[in-house]
């Protein structure tokens, strides 16, 4: 009765063979295609480097002014503008300006990529139940799989650096964008859609003039979530060489520098709060327009 107390697992040798087979296949694949995949992502890398340099070399008062301006136009709330300005000033005073700009650049790129990819996927999911039942489990895997696990193949393919960092962040941060786009479109009032159709809308007219505008508050909630999740990934991304606020945190963990970890951690929190308040109040203003 051994097999009842001890699970009849595959033998050690068989397991080793399986692991080896998977590993060699992937290693061969990455040796074969690694460089061409790297080439494919080259424009992305160029853009990342350019944006990071731009943010770092631009004089800090201009950056703070721009952030204040964007906050104002998005939220029309002076408290949010004031909070954002003070947070950035404190970050600068405590010597974290350059790292914060690096993080800002990578978050910006990750968010843009997530919107660019997530929006059409969300629309596709809303359009077809079959697509939804196919994509939902993939999103579940992307959100629950420990990020370290998918860092391994990404690093094997592309090595260490910004691009694999961005890919890892986007994999983790894109699901809410897709889910909330899908949800927002599906929740559009059926009667309104029927009216659009009865008056002769084409599929694209319906999507552009009715479904997307009415789903916008939900889509904005998705963008907000995506930004938050990207920020929470910066420390993990720094393990594969992404510069920014994550690197000092990582250094603080390995060397037990409590204060260093705390300051950089707080800087990440400050960025997150700025992004969150600004994007949320913009989303609310959009919603308010037709709820008034």
């Amino acid at each position: 009765m051994d097999w009842l107390t001890e699970f009849p697992a595959l033998s050690y040798d068989a397991l080793r063979e399986i692991n080896k087979a998977v590993d060699t296949t992937f290693r061969d694949f990455s040796r074969e295609y690694g460089s061409s995949i790297e080439q494919f992502f080259d424009p992305l890398l160029q853009f990342l480097v350019w944006l990071e340099q731009l943010l770092i070399t631009t004089p800090w008062p201009i950056i703070i002014g721009l952030v204040a301006l964007v906050s104002w136009f998005a939220s029309r709330n002076y408290k949010i503008v004031l909070g954002a300005t003070i947070s950035l000033l404190l970050i600068g005073i405590f010597g974290m300006w350059e790292n914060t700009m690096s993080t800002l650049s990578i978050i910006t790129v990750c968010t843009l990529l997530s919107i660019l990819l997530g929006l059409p996927i969300g629309i596709l999911m809303a359009h077809s139940n079959r697509a939804q039942s196919f994509i939902t489990p993939i999103l579940d895997v992307m959100q629950t799989m420990p990020s370290f696990v998918y860092l391994i193949p990404v690093v094997m393919l592309l090595g260490i650096g910004k691009v694999p960092g961005v890919i890892a962040v986007v994999i983790y941060a894109i699901p809410p964008m897709i889910r909330l786009t899908n949800l927002g479109i599906r929740h559009v009032d059926k009667a309104v859609l029927e009216a659009a159709e009865a008056f002769g809308s084409t599929y694209w007219q319906k999507l552009r003039q009715v479904q997307l505008p009415l789903a916008l508050p939900s889509i904005f909630a998705g963008i907000n979530q995506t930004i938050m999740m990207s920020l929470s990934m910066v420390v993990i991304a720094s393990m594969i060489g992404v510069k920014g606020l994550g690197q000092p945190v990582l250094k603080a963990i390995t060397n037990q520098y409590f204060a260093m970890g705390l300051f950089n951690g707080l800087a990440i929190v400050a960025l997150a709060i700025i992004f969150d308040r600004v994007s949320q109040s913009y989303g609310k203003r959009l919603q308010g327009q037709h709820n008034a």
């Binding site: 009032d189 009667a191 029927e194 009216a195 009865a198 009415l214 037709h290």
Partner: peptide, 17 residues
């Protein structure tokens, strides 16, 4: 639908935005 038949709905179905 564009030219010959128009429709009025029970729940109005106006575009809220």
């Amino acid at each position: 639908r564009l030219h010959k038949i128009a429709m009025v709905f029970q729940k109005f179905a106006l575009m809220p935005h």
